[in-house]
C-alpha cells in the first residue's frame, strides 16, 4: 500500500517542531523580543496562499469573491512581512557590545 502524501507532510511538520524546539531554546533571553517580531514576519509566508487565491480570478473578472479575500490577505501579510523584518532589523541594530561604543 502506498503512503499517503499527507503522512510525508505530517513528518515534516513534526520534525520542524523539534527543530524549532532546539533552535528556540538556544536563543539568548535578551533577544526574545526580536525573536517574537521575526517569527511574526516569517509566519507571514502565508502570503503564498494569499497570492494563489488572488491570482485565481479570471482576466475579465479580477475581483471575484474569493480573490478579494486573497487580495486583502496579501495586504495584511505584506504589512507583517515588511513591518516584522524591518522592526527586527531596527531592534538588532541597537544591540551593541561595549567595545563597539563610539566615543
Amino acid at each position: 500500500m502506498e503512503i499517503d502524501p499527507f503522512i510525508f507532510r505530517f513528518s515534516i511538520f513534526i520534525l520542524s517542531i523539534f527543530i524549532g524546539y532546539y533552535v528556540v531554546w538556544s536563543v539568548t533571553p535578551s533577544l526574545h523580543t526580536p525573536l517574537m517580531s521575526v517569527t511574526n514576519a516569517i509566519s507571514s509566508v502565508i502570503i503564498v496562499g494569499a497570492i494563489v487565491a488572488a491570482l485565481a480570478g479570471s482576466a475579465e473578472n479580477v475581483f471575484e469573491t474569493s480573490s478579494i479575500f486573497g487580495f486583502i490577505a496579501i495586504v495584511l501579510a505584506a504589512i507583517n512581512i515588511f513591518g516584522g523584518f524591518l522592526v527586527t532589523q531596527r531592534m538588532l541594530q541597537m544591540y551593541k557590545k561595549k567595545k563597539d561604543k563610539k566615543k
Partner: peptide
C-alpha cells in the same frame, strides 16, 4: 494548518517553528 491545506512545505515548516517558539516562550 493553512500549510497543510495548500500542501506547502515552507508554510508547514514555518508554522511549526513559530508554533514551538511561542510555546517555549
Amino acid at each position: 494548518g493553512i500549510g497543510f491545506t495548500l500542501e506547502n512545505t515552507a508554510l508547514i515548516i514555518t508554522g511549526a517553528l513559530v508554533g514551538s517558539s511561542g510555546a517555549i516562550l
